[in-house]
Amino acid sequence: MASIARSSLLRQAASTTKFSAATRPAFQQTSIANAVRATAFHTTARRDLLPPLPQRVEGTVNDASPVPPTSPSHGSYHWTFDRLVAGSLIPLTVVPFAAGSLNPTLDAILCATILIHSHTGFQNIIIDYVPAYRTPRARKLFMWGLNAATVVVGLALYEFETTDVGITETIKRIWTA
């Protein structure tokens, strides 16, 4: 069975091969030779679903991974602050359902809290998926991009809160439209 399949493959190869081995570029020759040699050992196809991000070796290869300097403001304080912000969103979310809407001050506080919550949430996502030790420049770019976006959104929310009817009232009007 296999020999039948192979002979037809060879015939096909003979009819479609355009270049002889000597006219191929050098890099093709070496890569083909390597591939042929490696093919015998491969029984499964490689699937690069999530190719690893670029890596660097710090020091020598046998050194342990460097532990980043600890800092409570990037650690436990930050974590607690995140939870406080998230927790304070609970009453701000429940009140408009109970009272029908929010007064401008509470609405502005809700906007600001959501903005902080979104900003730190996006920060967490960037920290998780754009690691600084692998892609330091992309990390910096994303972080500063996020900062810029948050400033723009903050400005827009200020504009919206001061010239329009406020976020809860807007949602209410759209919902009942």
Binding site: R6, L9, L10, Q12, A13, A14, T16, T17, A21, I32, A33, A35, V36, T39, A45
Partner: peptide, 20 residues
């Protein structure tokens, strides 16, 4: 099985390059 750009393009040449 699976489309693989390198092998799909080169399998014929590979078969010739390395006499079985």
């Amino acid at each position: 099985g699976k489309p693989n750009a390198f092998f799909a393009a080169n399998v014929a040449k590979l078969a010739l390059a390395q006499p079985l």
